[in-house]
């Protein structure tokens, strides 16, 4: 059919344009990390250089922002793994009054606009007279990190045959032993995938952080500040390349892990 072939061709062009739309800006970001022109982004770049990588390497403000972001992401992820797994364990199999409502409340933070979460947390911290610090940034990030871990864990737990847990108890294992030897090995991949996703989300978070950070700068906040001052612009691009790498790797890994963990064991 002629029209069908035409339609398929159009579809291909459409898909190509969409991909271009999504990835061209990223490609430009990467390209201008190598430009020799430091004040404006002119196209094509007048020349290519690796100089900005050396400059970025020697800038202490970048190092401290990167270190803060990694620490926040790590602590927020650990907190989320702990609390998210517990919440999933509590809600996956049990039935009690108000359970659905609690499950909804757990997932809600990810649907709330970041600006609302940020504002809410800022006013709460103000009211409770908690000074803005590393801890407040972590708490802000944990709100959505917990959801990610919880969702992954609860989906895996629901597919786990309940008789496995009964069999473990029947064979003499206490609740803790059952968790350690039966449940954890079966949901480990889902937890790892959720943890990586949470880490990536925390690492590049801007909106909630602007409300919950004090004087400290996470890497995304640092980048936002850099855009205003046109000084050594390509350095920002170098950092952007770094962020792409740090967030993309866990996301790709999480994707494969989640897919793998989805296989039913007979």
């Amino acid at each position: 059919m002629r029209s069908e072939r035409q339609g398929r061709g159009l579809l291909r062009v459409g898909a190509f344009i969409t991909l271009l739309f999504l990835y061209l800006p990223l490609a430009l970001v990467v390209l201008y990390a190598f430009t020799t022109e430091e004040r404006s982004y002119q196209f094509p770049p007048p020349g290519l250089t690796l100089r900005w990588f050396a400059v970025a390497w020697s800038r202490t403000d970048i190092w401290s922002a990167l270190s803060l972001s990694l620490q926040v992401a790590a602590v927020a992820t650990l907190l989320a793994l702990f609390l998210g797994t517990l919440a999933a364990g509590g809600l996956a199999r049990t039935r009690f009054f108000g359970k659905d409502q609690i499950a909804l409340l757990l997932i809600l933070p990810i649907a709330l606009p970041g600006i609302v979460t940020g504002l809410a947390m800022r006013s709460s911290f103000d009211l409770l007279e908690i000074p803005f610090s590393f801890l407040t940034i972590v708490l802000g990030h944990a709100t959505f990190c917990i959801v990610i871990v919880y969702n992954n864990a609860v989906a895996r737990l629901r597919r786990l045959s309940p008789s496995l847990i009964e069999a473990s108890m029947d064979l003499g294992a206490s609740a803790f032993q059952t968790f350690r030897w039966i449940i954890l090995p079966n949901i480990a991949k889902a937890l790892l995938a959720g943890g990586m996703l949470a880490f990536a989300l925390s690492f590049d978070e801007v909106i909630v952080t602007t409300f919950t950070a004090g004087q400290q700068q996470t890497l995304p906040i640092w980048m936002l500040g850099e855009l205003i001052r046109p000084r050594q612009r390509p350095v920002t691009n170098v950092v952007a390349v770094l962020v792409i790498l740090i967030t993309a790797l866990p996301l790709v890994l999480a994707y494969y892990l989640a897919r793998d963990g989805g296989e039913e064991h007979p």
């Binding site: 496995l164 009964e166 069999a167 108890m169 029947d170 039966i182 064991h265």
Partner: peptide, 20 residues
């Protein structure tokens, strides 16, 4: 008494073998 305090053991309908 919980299952692990009883001198009985069960063969489950779906066998409930630990897949890992």
């Amino acid at each position: 008494l919980p299952p692990y305090r009883r001198p009985v053991n069960t063969v489950f309908q779906d066998y409930a073998l630990f897949p890992h």
